[in-house]
Design a protein around this nucleic acid. Structure first.
Lengths: 116, 116
DNA sequence: AAGTTAATTAACCTATAAGTTAAATACAGG
DNA sequence: CCTGTATTTAACTTATAGGTTAATTAACTT
């Protein structure tokens, strides 16, 4: 739980239960009980995970009667993707060619006629 | 730390000191002392961080006399990138168009003549 | 052999993450 | 108003992350 945003996001994602919750939310909104159902864990445990996800900005929660529907918020994931980009060249062999290519279509326009 | 690979990677990346070490290693190999220099922290603390990075597969260490040159290993980062891809559509507005486009050039061949 | 530099290991401390059970809160409906 | 359902909070436990200082190992240098 360091203070910077990116660290908080990574720490939040470092738990398989929380990632599973995000995967479920990628399919659409869900209530706490719905989210808890697949797990052995107690409901308070899930509630805590949701609080962690919420503090990291990875979910938001609404209010509908006694339900608190959760929805995915991808902002922090975008930050992670941005951070990762700095390292892409270390694993992606085609990165350099692709970078050249993107540069080219950005300058000359897409050879197939699409806009970017 | 949980046992699965991805969790270990995220947990490892959740520390700003460790991310700074990776950023330094992106510039090239470095010894422990070189890596430690920018930080207030004690050398054993850095040594521990390096051990965490090594266990996560994010670095490897060689031996040259009394030095242990560290180098970046991007495999785990690639896994993170793969995981992230599942969520890209939640933040990237142009994702759908791009997916269509990539599909097309994969089928018809790159209009500019490159291989994929 | 003795000393110096590089790095790790050991022993320890403190904070907190992640789970538990039990109690509390919020709301809906008969 | 009372009851059931949804969810959170409280209090507590246990494990471990991340830092410290001091001691140790390893290899070069003189």
């Amino acid at each position: 739980m360091p203070t910077d945003h990116l660290s908080a996001t990574f720490a939040t994602l470092a738990d398989p239960t929380r990632r599973a919750i995000l995967a479920r939310l990628a399919l659409g909104e869900a209530t706490v009980n719905e989210l808890a159902a697949p797990f052995e864990m107690s409901l308070p445990a899930i509630s805590k995970h949701l609080k962690v996800l919420e503090r990291a900005g990875l979910i938001t929660r609404g209010r509908e009667a006694q339900w608190r529907p959760c929805r995915l918020e991808a902002g922090p994931l975008k930050e992670v993707a941005g951070w990762l980009e700095h390292y892409r060249r270390f694993w992606d062999d085609s990165f350099d060619r692709m970078a050249d290519y993107l540069k080219e279509i950005q300058t000359k326009g897409d050879p197939d006629g699409r806009k970017n």
